[in-house]
Design a protein around this nucleic acid. Structure first.
Lengths: 361, 361
DNA sequence: ATGAAAGCGCTAACAT
DNA sequence: ATGTTAGCGCTTTCAT
């Protein structure tokens, strides 16, 4: 398929000599090249290159001489040119599809900072379900990104996943069920078991469940960890509901389904669902007898007005492990990295109910 | 400064013939080059280039022949190589510093999608105040990004701003007070005037104000629009407070300062502050007599549990204008684009009070 | 309209 | 340890 490039016309025009150079478009002199710098200080061009390449054989005298000159003359190596020869870009493609969920901005922010600290740049791909995914991801290939990190891109089917990742180091975050790509994921099983344990210990026995996507790997794992532990402890599953989304509204609506079933606790597949649930439960005046748990520990979970008991996803650790894997010398076969989070006990599982958390005080 | 390249070793290995090919590391044959494709179908290499360059002089016969062959053989032009000759990257550097505020993820998501739809890639820079900003932004220069979009990067001082934007098309979003860079910004003045008008019409007269940053351009404009309109309408400013942050907690705490001053409405510089304020006001049992307004219209503002009256920032329009400016043929001198938002009237300014919004029902 | 040839600014053999 | 040379895969004159 031919992809026409929308900027092309602009380029074409800006390439001609006829346009006026406007004030902002400072008739920027081309940046100094290594050859020019070499001429200026009377060394070979390759010396310049070596000076900027750690571990290359160059005397520290020459190197510091060159680096100082570079600073004085304002020389910086042109990354594009070196990409061409080395076939390395130091760019990681970061693919996201769902920024609605407040969990992702935090993950994304830390990920880019982590990559940045490791000298990697993030080329950002935000998949909108509207257009062709292949079109949206074409830059992964034409720009030759070194690696791809896919953040829970449930919109990518198996085929697109393969297309996007093939031939490059790839890591799937928060997505399960792919044998041939390395994944880094929170320990969902442990998380949901902990939550159920906590509910058990605080005396809850009739549990409802609100799912997000019931078809995704993570969704399935969470649900099955939940039900398994429930059964082990002899607790009762009074009902489940889903709107096939991880949104506040989905949480609100699903909770409406469950309240008539008289649960004494509702477990939500994620925090944002739980926040919606809290609203419904409050409206129904049931905050005193229905406990609520979430998953993720997004910032809002700890707002006094919610004080949601949840399981914290180890974002820091996920990011660190991801960067580590990206930088690793030897990659080996695809691996499954499962990182432990932490149970955050707050008001919504208080045995006495949480009707007295601020908003209703 | 020498930047060591973390992915180097891996690539070095994958380049030699000695490494073991692991399962993931599909012994990827180098992608086809234009020269190779040319040889395959018996045309010149430049013909290939022309086929992919709209507006170049090539017969449509030859072009379609080449494009079909490209599809069959899986040829894609190497963007890196063309960057080197054209000195254009089609990459926009997107600089963010504050992803805490839930307003930015939405803006960011739409911006990348907008850029993507225009054939531009987003290289993401998330500034953490810890490290050297210059270090964090060095890729803007070495990667030769075509343009820079800076999203309310209050952490960038004037000098860094100049350094990051010089020599390239640059746009500042949501930041004011810079004569020499084009800005695209919501009409803060109109917004705050509308909010005050609305409070006036609904009978409020004793107004408190909670600011975010009091030193930023946007912060000043918002406050001054607010006070100006207040004075015009003869309303009373009972007090102001700030914690120098746009966070839920800052909103909560600042509101504690204002309640003793007996306002009948509090105007918040942003939604996230207002949400914190709502919490404090509820705790104080004053929801029936203190109206609340925000600014931004983040998703949470419309949650039934908040139902916050606010002024919607025209995110769609801001993004569209930004992309338009980035693609424009002729750029001219720095401009100030001010886009109108929309007053969103919800429960928190109901004359009867909002004590009955769901959480306290 | 097409082909040939000369770079773009760097890295990486290959010499010395 | 340093310099010389040959590309990386394109775009772009310049011929024809």
């Amino acid at each position: 398929m031919v992809r026409s490039n929308p900027l092309m016309i602009w380029w074409a025009l800006s390439g001609t000599g006829t346009r006026q150079v406007s004030k902002t478009e400072t008739a920027t002199a081309r940046p100094l090249t290594s050859r020019q710098l070499a001429a200026l200080i009377g060394v070979s061009q390759s010396a310049i290159s070596r000076a900027f390449t750690p571990g290359s054989s160059i005397s520290s005298d020459l190197r510091s001489k060159i680096l100082m000159a570079a600073r004085d003359y304002g020389y910086r190596p042109n990354a594009i040119a070196s990409m061409l020869t080395t076939r390395r870009t130091n760019i990681v493609g970061v693919v996201v599809s769902d920024m609605q969920n407040p969990f992702y901005p935090a993950l994304l922010a830390q990920l880019t900072q982590g990559l940045q600290a490791a000298g990697l740049q993030s080329l950002f791909f935000n998949i909108s379900p509207g257009a062709s995914i292949e079109d949206q991801l074409h830059a992964i290939r034409t720009y030759n990104v070194d690696a791809v990190v896919i953040i829970s891109a449930t919109v990518l089917n198996e085929r697109m996943l393969t297309w996007a990742t093939e031939g490059r180091r790839s890591i799937l975050l928060n997505r399960l069920g792919h044998e041939d790509i390395t994944t880094v994921c929170c320990d969902n099983t442990l998380g949901f078991r902990s939550l159920v344990d906590h509910l058990f210990e605080t005396g809850r026995r009739r549990i409802g469940y609100v799912a997000g996507f019931t078809t995704s790997g993570v969704g399935l794992v969470r649900y099955s960890a939940f039900t398994t532990r429930l059964a082990e402890l002899g607790m009762r599953l009074v009902g489940t509901s889903t709107r096939q989304a991880y949104t506040h509204e989905a949480g609100r609506l699903s909770t409406l389904d469950l309240i008539p079933l008289e649960p004494d606790a509702i477990v939500y597949a994620s925090d944002i669902l739980a926040l919606g649930g809290i609203e419904t439960i409050r409206m129904a005046g049931r905050a005193k007898d229905i406990a609520v748990t979430g998953f993720d520990d997004i910032p809002m979970a700890s707002w006094p007005g919610y004080s949601l008991t949840t399981y914290r996803q180890p974002v820091r650790e996920i990011v660190d492990r991801t960067v580590e894997l990206l930088l690793a010398t030897d990659i080996g076969p695809p691996q499954r990295h499962t990182l432990q989070g932490e149970l955050m006990i707050r008001a919504t599982t208080d045995p006495a109910g949480w009707a007295d958390v601020p908003p209703s005080a």
